[in-house]
Design a protein around this nucleic acid. Sequence first.
DNA 1: CCTTGAAGGTTGGATCAGCAGACCTTTTCC
DNA 2: GGAAAAGGTCTGCTGATCCAACCTTCAAGG
Lengths: 245, 245
Amino acid sequence: MTDTAVSREPSSSLEALFAPVHSQTAFEETVERLGTAIKLGLLPPGTRLPAERELCARLGIARSTLRQALVALGQSGHLHATRGRGGGTFVADPLPPAQPPSPRVLADWRETCDQRMAVEVGIAVLAAARAEPAMVDALEDLVVTIDSLLDDFTAYRPLDVRFHVGLAELTGSAQLVKQMTETQGAMSALISHIAHPPEVLDSANDQHRRLVIALRRHDEAAAARVMTEHLRGTEHVLAGLLPRG
Amino acid sequence: MTDTAVSREPSSSLEALFAPVHSQTAFEETVERLGTAIKLGLLPPGTRLPAERELCARLGIARSTLRQALVALGQSGHLHATRGRGGGTFVADPLPPAQPPSPRVLADWRETCDQRMAVEVGIAVLAAARAEPAMVDALEDLVVTIDSLLDDFTAYRPLDVRFHVGLAELTGSAQLVKQMTETQGAMSALISHIAHPPEVLDSANDQHRRLVIALRRHDEAAAARVMTEHLRGTEHVLAGLLPRG
DNA sequence: CCTTGAAGGTTGGATCAGCAGACCTTTTCC
DNA sequence: GGAAAAGGTCTGCTGATCCAACCTTCAAGG
């Protein structure tokens, strides 16, 4: 069949070129967008979503399609709806327990980490270049808040996400913010089911703090270095606690 | 509508959450994948694509859908097909002249550059950490080859792309390779229509060379620094030559 | 009380992308 | 001259999505 033919070592890029095309439907993308936003705490429990008629307009999809997504998220326990005037669709409180990572997700956790490394380091550099004092202050406040949550991972994690997304917002690029939330979503699927001793969180937040300092000094090199170290930390924890480390 | 600042304070991440959902069809994705691969020189002129029946199987789409894409790329002059045994679908030689960037593309060229910065800096760091001598040698050969093409941008550019994609391959992550090619495709749309004096290309390739040195020494910090500088170079050129710099 | 308005819930038909697979036409190799 | 391998064509089917009404619930307010 396809022996050594055209490409032996000529780049895995050609294999990727002809890799399966996976067209995501509007329904799927909607479930994923809202689902990860909820799981990440970007939409805190109790939040009320915009009315269906408004939301479908904003998302540029039909109401029936949006509905499918809302029903799906309702059945998984992430949303619940109340009818009548003053009703609406709300983020569940409390949220359902997180699902354990699927074998698919576990299988390429290293790819996920690589992806994260690429996105976050680049963002850290850009953020360092552009950081405005006011926005850095906001991040620093976050770090202080997080310091008091080191023994409660379920409270810690949403603020951690907020920190990283905030970093992306610092770049002023909507694209990068989107990529950061996607990346954080992928990471959450991995880390929400492993142990996080306070010492580890403490060390992580210390890196947050050093990152803030680098941002304030517009020190791109330091930002890159601290971020790399920060992510390697997570990677080592995962390597130790996931099957086949 | 769109205020002065990027966003006031209400977490631009929430706006992005409800942004329009743009589900790409299999047809569109196929055209884009093959189209950018051709424009980037990943599939050099004269290359023969796999037979339709095999290709649609690999892409996981119906033959009729693949066909739509091939016809579209045929009409735009990027592909031509010959029938009968020994026939096939070939990349056009010569390629049609590149289309000038659309207003849409021009409008957010800064976003494109930011995107590139994020992806490439992260990849540079990962690549520096993992570079294996043999693969670095291949990159170095590329740099030498490029040195002889500084006065012919149409010959220079494909090898430039090859260098950056090769860097991504060094990370061993298929995802990152894919992202790199996408990013390079977006950049090509911007830079293929502006002047590239030999001095600029010379300086760029010198940065390639310094990057190779950093890779060989596994010096992540240097890799990040050189890459940042490299991309800023392109950014300045664009800022000078595009409308509303 | 009971009307009204704002919300979620339901239904049915139209459209279109994509799939599946058989069949046709051209060309080269044996 | 026939078999094989390629692109080119046709037809019917399924499922996702859209559109546009219409129904049901229920709190606010006259």
